[in-house]
Design a protein around this nucleic acid. Structure first.
Lengths: 156, 156
DNA sequence: TAATATAGTTAGCCGCCCCTAACTTTTCAA
DNA sequence: TTGAAAAGTTAGGGGCGGCTAACTATATTA
């Protein structure tokens, strides 16, 4: 095939890319220790992951140096971050889940969504936010529906 | 705590429970070979999983016998199946993804959803299907929105 | 009922990803 | 500038969940 498929990484490696992406977002640089803290894993695990990611051409990294994303790594990271954001918004804004719950769920689900579903979910969120302008406001209506459900349950 | 939390299983073990659940749904019985075929793993892997699930009190199983779900196993399996169905409906009916894509995505995501999100997603699907009766039909509106998006992209 | 085919198990291997402990390199401050 | 603290690496181990190959038990059928 002519088009190169985007590299397929494990959920764990995607998480490392995501962490590096966020750490390098300011002007800062991704130090091993910070990655370890952000991901709540040991520094040794980070070393191993960086080695693997470097072999796969996802990060620039030399022993005792800091990590930066390659072009390829950036692409993958952005895709993961995008999915994370979409899911967080969906769970939080639309379904009305508590932010911390929405975050956590997004973290776990972000590695399982394909291109097609991601695009459609994104579109759906856009679609719903557009209806807020023309009086329908699906979000608010659902919120009311949900409250009624909850109350009904509590009375039983 | 007084209430016993539902046993936490790995995604893989949940998949085994799901497979056994479906195989034993008719009057049939879950044979090791059928589980292997359904899940596309080796028979040896099934033996290992059944041993683990049996230790965890999720299946009744004796070597060279067939597998049945215990009460606890049924509970977990039903919960997984429920999530699978909810996700399939959401991806398929609501987002309008192709059934096979919706299925596959549901398979992967079903192990990542917590109680809260599952309940809200379920409610959301109910909510949307109810709006179809009173003239709004969110599904149809989104379908049109999506088509317009697709066409816009194709023209570029 | 004996032989063979089928189903199930065991043993042993591998990859992934985490860990701790001990060692090396780098940084920083006295 | 040198020695201690901090950061990073290496070595080795464990759990999980796949796999194949070889063995055992069960079923079938000639």
């Amino acid at each position: 095939m002519a088009v190169k498929a985007i590299e397929k990484l494990s959920a764990s490696l995607e998480d490392y890319l995501e962490a590096i992406y966020h750490l390098t977002a300011g002007q800062e640089v991704a130090r091993s220790k910070d990655i370890a803290e952000a991901m709540k894993v040991s520094r040794a695990s980070v070393t191993g992951a960086l080695k693997t990611l470097s072999e796969k051409g996802m990060v620039y990294y030399k022993p005792y140096g800091y990590a930066t994303l390659t072009e390829k790594g950036q692409q993958v990271a952005r895709r993961v971050v995008r999915r994370h954001e979409i899911l967080t918004r969906f769970f939080g804004e639309l379904l009305g889940a508590d932010p911390s719950i929405a975050q956590a769920a997004a973290c776990r689900a972000e590695h399982t969504l394909g291109l097609e579903i991601t695009a459609r979910l994104m579109a759906f969120i856009e679609f719903v936010s557009k209806t807020q302008d023309d009086g329908q406001d699906i979000t608010k209506q659902f919120q009311q529906y949900w409250e009624r459900l909850r109350n009904a349950e509590c009375k039983m």
